[in-house]
């Protein structure tokens, strides 16, 4: 029987009609830490799916080199990423309710960024900052689901990217090993697949399909 990678048999889940699905998702808040390749694409997929309350966090500005994989456009080069992404998300759904934070994530400010979030998405690029986010969330908000990503670089098979539940409140999307520090390129298709895994994990959690 086909199963998802978190172990739950898809065939055993109740069917949620579209209207109910969007009503549930619209009532929830998701914090996205990092709005680059993972975060910008994940945010767009969540808004298209009906998640309308988002906190967007990123310190950076849009560069031409980001356009090969990030949800930005040529006329947004030079803009603050969270501001550019807010405009794009508003074009997808004008009713979107955004909290936009243009700051670098650190141990002092991170907890304030995730206040009120039903689910947190870790979407930064540095391994050190990923570890910081996982560490602080695990210690300070251990019951808030956290969706991380690790191992999305390079051009290996897309089928190696999966979603794994590593701990009670931690899901990780990726192949766990492909590291940009090993010289792997970042390819839009693989980055966006990992972002889609993250968005889908968020949706399943918000719908109550991932268990306690």
């Amino acid at each position: 029987m086909p199963t998802d990678t978190t172990g739950a048999p898809d065939s055993g889940e109740r069917m949620i009609p579209q209207e109910e699905l969007r009503r549930i998702l619209a009532s929830k808040t998701v914090a996205i830490l990092g709005c680059g390749g993972l975060g910008s694409n994940c945010a767009a997929m969540l808004v298209r799916s009906g998640v309308l309350k988002l906190t967007l966090v990123d310190f950076d500005t849009v560069e031409a080199g980001n356009l090969n994989r990030q949800m930005f456009f040529t006329d947004q080069v030079g803009m603050i990423k969270v501001d550019a992404l807010a405009i794009t998300l508003g074009r997808i759904d004008p009713s979107v309710n955004l909290r936009v934070i243009h700051e670098c994530i650190n141990a002092e400010n991170m907890l304030g960024m995730i206040t009120g979030a039903d689910v947190i998405v870790e979407a930064v690029d540095s391994a050190e900052t990923k570890a910081l986010i996982l560490h602080l969330c695990g210690r300070e908000v251990p019951d808030v689901p956290l969706i991380s990503a690790s191992g999305l670089a390079g051009h290996a098979s897309a089928n190696r990217i999966e979603t794994i539940r590593l701990a009670d409140s931690l899901w990780v999307a990726g192949d766990l090993t492909s590291d940009i520090r090993d010289g792997h390129a970042l390819v839009a298709s693989r980055v966006m697949i990992a972002a889609a895994h993250q968005a889908h994990a968020v949706i399943r959690i918000l719908l109550g399909l991932e268990g306690a």
């Binding site: 990092g34 680059g36 390749g37 993972l38 975060g39 979407a123 930064v124 690029d125 540095s126 391994a127 990923k130 570890a131 996982l134 560490h135 969330c137 695990g138 210690r139 251990p142 991380s148 990503a149 690790s150 191992g151 999305l152 670089a153 590593l166 701990a167 009670d168 931690l170 990780v172 990726g174 766990l176 090993t177 492909s178 590291d179 940009i180 520090r181 792997h184 970042l186 980055v191």
Partner: peptide, 30 residues
């Protein structure tokens, strides 16, 4: 990042009979 029994743990923590320790190294890219 380290977990014991599916919950976040500090590296200074002692382990106990029957516990499960998991150690995960995030890699760069995003």
């Amino acid at each position: 990042i380290v977990f014991v029994g599916g919950r976040h743990a500090e590296e200074t923590s002692e382990l106990h009979e029957g516990e499960r320790l998991a150690i995960f190294p995030p890699v760069a890219g995003g």
